[in-house]
Design a protein around this nucleic acid. Sequence first.
RNA 1: GCUGACGUAGCUCAGUCGGUAGAGCACAUCCUUGGUAAGGAUGAGGUCACCGGUUCAAUCCCGGUCGUCAGCUCCA
Length: 647
Amino acid sequence: MENINITFPDGSVKQFEKGITAFKIAESISHRLADDALAVKVNGETKDLQCKLDTDSTIQFLTFKDEEGKEVYWHSTSHLMAHAVQEIYPEAKFGVGPAIEGGFYYDIDINSPITEEDLIKIENKMLKIAKCNDQFIRQDLSKDEAIKFFKAKGDEYKLEILSGIDENSESVSLYKEGEFVDLCRGPHLPSAGKIKYIKLLNISGSYWRGDEHNKQLQRIYGISFPKKKMLDEHLALLEEAKKRDHRKLGKELELFFFTPKVGAGLPLWLPKGTVLRETLENFLREEQVKRGYLPVITPHIGNIELYKTSGHYPYYKDSQFPTLKFENSAEEYLLRPMNCPHHFQIYSSKMRSYRDLPLRLAEFGTVYRYEQSGELNGLTRARSFAVDDSHIFVRQDQLKDEICNVIDLVQTVFSAVGFADFTTELSYRDNNDEKYGGEVELWEKAQKEIKAAADKMNLDYKIVEGEAAFYGPKIDFIVKDVLGRKWQLGTVQIDYVMPVRFDLEYIGSDGKKHRPVVIHRAPFGSLERFIGLLIEHFAGYFPTWLTPVQVTVIPVSQNYVEYAKKVLNSLKENGLRAEIDERNEKIGYKIRECEKNKIPYMLIVGEKEQTAGNISVRKHKEGDKGTLSLNDFIDNITDEIKNKLIN
RNA sequence: GCUGACGUAGCUCAGUCGGUAGAGCACAUCCUUGGUAAGGAUGAGGUCACCGGUUCAAUCCCGGUCGUCAGCUCCA
């Protein structure tokens, strides 16, 4: 019998009989490994443990600790769920059922809606089936055979998937688990018994193949774990996440709210939220002053012709509020969905020289977009929001340096608030010419510039084709919310199209007219979305420089209110955002309220403090910090604010 | 926009198998003047989202509208 060499992740090499299964190798190493292994990676490719090895290979066993191991585990659970659904609803037809980040789903076509109670039924059925511990058996077959099989079964969706498979380049395989057979690439767990703890999380509609013209199937989301503790921890984590939700905290901390009396998706900023927002705005204003930006202010509406010129209207009509017009007039106005056309007019308001460039016009400009009702999501997706917008007009030879400047600004902003966990995407055009304006060569040039700048700034980016704006490629900075949903914050966009449409020009050193390039950029993206993510990032515990109320003065009893007011005044005179709680309550009560309101510092003053002329400091989440002179406290907190410390 | 669920006091939620409602917190008044996460008493608060239908009677059943939530689709 021939032997093959198997290389393990630690570099060691062992000989095995040719044709041995990965599972046998695991067994030969330890029972523990054979038990924990879910799948195997052979020469970089994930496979079933039952796969046979015929050549020298490098292998790595995948357990639930590995991302790929989890993927296999959840993918197999989705099959198990489909199996359970098939038993309960024999008429069910199946779409796709992949593993996703944090679990799995399966799209199912059943006529009656699935309810929450049904989920429990399905869950119980799954556990029952898992106990049978049937193996996942792979069967490779030809496309024709597969078509025959699913025709007999009446699974139209599987047939549609099959019709898209090129038999020559992709293998066609089925996986059988008990009575349930599914078209699937695999790999899968050795058997269903590995799946121990299951929770079906929610049900929703989803269009077949993600196309809204297709039928909507019912999607069931779920997650599973090999250990009960893992499931419990995961569910606890989901509960925790809900507590950080900016929509919940926004209400609790009185930052903002929505009311249908004003309109869906139209946020109203309360005083505390406004302080937070203005603090952020001022921070960026100061940065922008240092970097040569010029402030401008423009109206929230504009003549419809402006948007016809820009090309936004009528192509994006669906996502704009209806136009405003008088009955007997041809005049028509649009609530602006973006600020650029206004800024272009400012650029054109006088003759520009090459010496004036880069010209950086900046405005916190509120825009209005009629987002689909189902898309609204607190501050992260609103119908009115302020873009920390700037349009930078540059010469071609200044473009790359200016993109670098802008990236640096975005990085400055992100690091000031401690956003370290973000991803960067370079969005390019794809081959669908209808989606984009301008000449292809200009696009290619712009994409090259953007990439060069991103490389120079050491951005760790991913290139995404087809995600560009219609006027040019862009760099997006993306942060996840508590529920794992991704949101674009900062953005840097290159535009060769608008300068042409608006006939923007400058006089070059040669005395002739030239076309500037425009950079659209917004480090926050929008104040609303940025603050929404910020609330969740800090779970409401903002750093002192940002928090709406920095200090609350708490007199121990009514007798010390006067002294407390003196303390309050000194704090205010030193520019601190301070309040006093002079209510007729015990200090334990007042402290509890401050803690709940996430106020960073409490100054407690009573007999001792009044006599000594000092204060007692309590820091939220930390407790009593002892006594300090008021001046020392003010020095410390002022320092903390000045340095924008994050703790 | 689509599928599903939900909408009861300022907030969090209970409740009514159809007879117009209740708790805790918050709020107000009084007692208490208290030293680091809830002192006590009393009181005020609701067109049960809105509009229509069925019914002797609707917060509850039915239809529509608005809004919220999850997901899909979309996202200049």
